[in-house]
Each structure stands twice: as C-alpha cells, then as structure tokens.
C-alpha cells in the first residue's frame, strides 16, 4: 500500500515523537530520522519504524520522524496514528 495523503501525529514534547507521512514519487520507503538519542538508539528506532510500516503493509512513503526520546511503543503508536489519518 502506498501513502497518498500527507498526515501527521505526535508532539514535540519530551518523551514523545512527531511523525509526518508523505507520498513518495520514487515508490519506496524513505525514512528521515532525527533523534536526541540517535547515537544510542538510532538502529532500534529504525527497526520500530520499519516494523510498524510493515504491519500496515506500507510499501511507499516518505516518513519524517522527529524523536524527542520516545519509548518504542510511543513511536509505534504515533506512526500508526499517522497512517490511519493518511488512509482516512
């Protein structure tokens, strides 16, 4: 499934994350990540992003993730919300 409509979810508060989804003209998944803990948890955050997109069968999108130290379940929830908003 391809993301066609832009959508956002989350906040810029500490321990949260702001997620934006956009259509990707290249028809691939493009992850753009910034995080206050990228050195320590960058790989893990990437895995959560990929896993959550896969759960919703997303095969094409630009996902911009601005992480403020969110736990994994918070990140997954915000991505899910953005996807559901995009599909609504």
């Amino acid at each position: 499934m391809e993301i066609k409509k832009a959508a956002q979810a989350g906040t810029y508060e500490s321990n949260d994350v702001y997620v934006q989804l956009f259509e990707n003209p290249n028809h691939t998944i493009d992850i753009q990540l910034t995080s206050v803990v990228i050195k320590q948890f960058g790989e893990q955050i990437h895995q959560v992003i990929q896993k959550t997109l896969k759960q919703f069968d997303i095969t094409s999108c630009i996902i911009v993730v601005e992480d403020k130290g969110a736990l994994d379940h918070v990140l997954a929830a915000r991505i899910e919300s953005a996807i559901l908003r995009s599909l609504s």
Partner: peptide, 14 residues
C-alpha cells in the same frame, strides 16, 4: 482524540 486513543492502547499493552 484519535491519536490519544491509539497511544493509550499501546501504552496499556506495554
């Protein structure tokens, strides 16, 4: 409201 519900569902399960 929608994202709060989703966040809470994930938090409660975790």
């Amino acid at each position: 409201k929608d994202s709060a519900r989703t966040l809470l569902r994930h938090s409660l399960s975790t």
